[in-house]
Design a protein around this nucleic acid. Structure first.
Lengths: 219, 219, 219, 219
DNA sequence: TATGAATGAGATTTCATTCAT
DNA sequence: GATGAATGAAATCTCATTCAT
């Protein structure tokens, strides 16, 4: 127990230090030695817990992401409507990235570029989170909220790509700029582009008119 | 003459080898020694042409990107309408990235994450290319093609972010998947989301129909 | 304990090997690799103990010189008279240089020519040792043993310069020549040149005896 | 002729540049490339004139020193008395070193420590110059100006060692300090220490006077 | 003669990693 | 379990030197 406690403590503090150091300097410029110093353990101890520098890198997102996933999962049932779900998830991403800049730096600048990560465990969680967006988009397509001729994978790529791109730039510019909350505006555009809109509005007006022959060109 | 030719040859072949090796293994896992071998020169020769490994990295995009920029510039005058311009530029990006996978790998996986690159010369060209999108969006806003309450920077981030995200995944999956041309679909959504919705016009046509049950499929 | 012992052992053996290799080949022609081999450790180990090749160089005189300084300090009180002190110190230099030829080679051929060394810690000790000579000279000046119109710094330079010059040649000739103990002879000349010659003068007064015509010019 | 002229020009300008660069940075930190740049020739050209970097180093003192030797030689006949000759030669050294700081830096900090130099041609000249001092000392010994129990080699070492030591320090301190003309003072001491002081002794004989008990230690 | 271009041969230094204690 | 100490294995970069032209 005491040992267990102590053990867990060390594990966590290594992860946290690694997150910070990797986040600040990037994977390649970070050294085990610095992580060890920051965690208050010896370098050898790190190798007691993690098999290699890369393993340590891959171990980081698991914890954080799975928390986010849990939250998203729990949220799912309470939010009605595909659009709302998408907004909630995107907002979750945004907050996660903004509130954990080391984490987003790590994910966007290091993990994302590591092919091996895609085979690592931590990647599962990340994929799960991305899966929620897909679910929501598909829900919207079958519920009729969205057009059914869209490619849900593409739409997800647009949402994630935009978020990532903006955080990218934020990190590269040294996080110096103020980070505006662009999520709503972004989704206004994207959802505006995939929503089935015309019917409602056009019907409201159409109904009163006689002698029409041509349906709207769509968009 | 002979010298000039020989010189240019060597310079070019170093750049090309570097592009390939960096593209395949990533900057940090690539070695000067391998680049030298691949270029058929000695390591020392590389240092005759480029001051350091990083300099070599930074020297790569200049050439390729500036060709792309030139093309975009020349194209600008001939294409009418903001939407068409955006489609052309995005298409240019797509083709560039698809046809030069080592280059896109390099840019997306290495250069983009290098803060120093933002201060290097090569970055100018990249920025110039991105500037064209912005110009087109703003043109659309002032011409009335697009709504004037959108954030052009955000829209650009959406376009670039989506393209980057998809190429990212393509590279990380080892370029094994077929790469669909998603540009049109992506822009359908984005432009659909920022276009002024000519309700007026659609009313003129819609009005003729009574008792509609099925809205048009759109596209 | 065991660790302490082992540690000190390695540190010392690196220093000793460095002293020997630097002494034989000179700083620039010596390689870390050879020092490592001679010390029976890996090159990397040297960098565990010393930050750089130059640091290693600078670390050497500290030990040896400070022993000499301690000795000189302890001796100071026991020797009476400026001349005797100077003789003792010069003799100390001579013995140190003769008995530690690698050390003197290092000091005279490498360290002395390194501007950075003057800012390094090890230089303090060397300066301290040189300070003792100055003290003794000044003591002699105020006690009346020496003339008071001499420049003590110059006298010190003469003593040190002579010693260094002779060891220089000895090293350059490959230490093949027998090294005579020149210290006494040298100091006979120097001290002969700076001593107050009161006796002579006082006798000159006595000389006012019958048959004398010209007193010596003295000086 | 034209060629000859041009050739000599190049040879000279390489020597001069080498003198300057070696003098400033030291032999090991100087590069052929910098010397070539400074001389306005290509690196390869340097190898047309000198076989190696070391050869170039060794070629430098020849010219300058042989000028000095010539001067000393010519002077020899005109100066009367060993002391005066020594003063003249020492003064020559001092002026040479002071007026050609790159040269003295080179000689004192680089050449002097190079064993191979002792076998090189340039060393002859240096030795010749040192020989003059020896000659003068020996002249003084046989003429009775100096005591005949001194070691002329030691005396020369004292003269040269002092000069070298002081210039050493001057160079190591970046030539920032004012360089006082210490030659006369130095020789006052040394010559004071080796001069025959017969007069004194002869007076000592006189001392056999009433009331005296202890004759001076003399020596 | 002069040189632009190329390179062979190392040297220093860095770290992730191991292992005896 | 924890770690101090040690190192293997490279990697970048430098320069004196060569040689075809």
């Amino acid at each position: 127990m005491g040992n267990d406690y102590k053990t867990k403590d060390k594990f966590t503090s290594i992860i946290e230090s690694a997150l910070q150091v990797f986040g600040e300097k990037g994977y390649y410029n970070a050294t085990i030695s610095e992580i060890a110093r920051s965690a208050g353990v010896s370098e050898a101890t790190i190798y007691e817990y993690f098999g290699s520098k890369e393993d340590l890198l891959f171990a980081i997102p698991g914890e954080i992401t799975s928390q986010a996933v849990q939250f998203l999962e729990s949220m799912k049932a309470y939010i009605k409507g595909a659009e709302n779900k998408i907004r909630a998830i995107a907002c979750g991403y945004f907050n996660l990235y903004r509130d954990n800049p080391d984490y987003s730096s790590l994910v966007l600048l290091d993990l994302k570029h590591n092919r091996k990560f895609m085979e690592a465990d931590g990647y599962r969680e990340v994929q799960k989170a991305a899966g929620f967006i897909l679910d929501a988009i598909e829900e919207g397509m079958s519920s009729g909220e969205f057009r059914d001729d869209i490619d849900p994978y593409l739409v997800r790529s647009m949402i994630l790509g935009t978020i990532e791109h903006i955080f990218f730039r934020w990190h590269l510019k040294g996080r110096s700029e103020e980070l505006e909350d662009f999520v709503d505006l972004m989704l206004d555009v994207i959802i505006g582009g995939i929503k089935k809109e015309e019917q409602t509005r056009s019907y409201q007006i159409n109904i009163t008119l006689p002698g029409e022959d041509k349906p709207p060109a769509g968009r």
